[in-house]
Nucleic acid binder design. Structure first.
Lengths: 164, 164
DNA sequence: TTTCGTGCAAAGCCTTTGCATCCAT
DNA sequence: ATGGATGCAAAGGCTTTGCACGAAA
């Protein structure tokens, strides 16, 4: 992800997941633990398929079936550990919703890059609008589409990370 | 839709659609014309399936196949006449993007109602963020999830349009 | 005639689910 | 022993596409 600062959290994702599962009469199985760890091993955005691939590449034999991954993703979302942020290619894209500050995204239509940003005035605006409509907000999703700085500039060839 | 005021437009949706199609070397066929008219006959949000149903209920024999509807929706989107606004039940939901002011939505998780709103500070914020990131915005989608006024209040039974 | 469009049915794609087997308590 | 969990394969649900026929220029 970008340069947003991680937030201090009291307990690890595994623990938080276990606590959630317990409230649902479920257990933190080996598979589910493997998945949470893999999910929180990196701050990148990912979709179900990418997660499955990452799990399949493991050499420690801790593979998990696709079904279990999908089931776990739903549980991670319900537990507040993950959040669905976009659906670029008809695939749900997830990101950490635990230990990470709330933010929104600029989405480049050319290279698909997701740029995170935070702006307080958005929340002020949302509160105002909610009040005006007697609406009780539980969440929001703001996706800003366009062209990122890199894709905007005149290109000889496309350069990914420039300025070396 | 809600109480947003329609914007004056120079040409009809049909005309605008025809113009777009011509630039693509396509024609405004009877089917496509039937679809644009049906789409712009009402300001409600709709999904592909609802549009197909509306077209199937016609008694004037002007029915259109599902494939053609899907193809036309893509063209209407490309032409700037329609915009995809949400995807509540895995169905893409569309609304008019022509002759209607730009706005965003409060989406009630209980009853599924879409409430439109406009707030200038959002655009100010977006411009600022875009500038900071060297990002060129082409569009945005803001979905605010929660509970609408109607669903919030203590209910004996659920009432749709109250206060009679 | 030639190109574009339509309709039908089949295929695609991501995701969900039925079901038999397994595992931990 | 027992209820939840996993994996596989099949089913689902929306959307897209191949293809032959039809219509307009």
């Amino acid at each position: 992800m970008s340069d947003l600062t991680a937030v201090d959290v009291a307990v690890s994702p595994e623990t938080k997941f276990r606590e959630y599962l317990m409230t649902q009469g479920m257990r933190l199985t080996t598979e589910r633990e493997t998945i949470v760890r893999e999910v929180f091993a990196s701050h990148e955005h990912f979709d179900a398929d990418q997660l499955v691939s990452r799990l399949n590449q493991r050499t420690d034999g801790k593979r998990v079936s696709r079904s279990t991954v999908y089931r776990a993703l739903a549980q991670l979302k319900d537990s507040g550990l993950l959040r669905a942020v976009a659906r670029p290619n008809d695939r749900e894209v997830y990101e950490h919703d635990y230990g990470y500050p709330q933010h929104d995204h600029l989405i480049c239509k050319e290279c698909g890059d997701l740029i995170e940003f935070v702006d307080d005035s958005l929340n002020e605006m949302l509160s105002r609008v909610a009040a005006q409509n007697g609406f009780r907000i539980s969440a929001h999703r703001l996706e800003v589409y366009g062209k990122c700085a890199n894709c905007c500039r005149p290109k000889r060839r496309q350069r990914k990370t420039d300025m070396i």
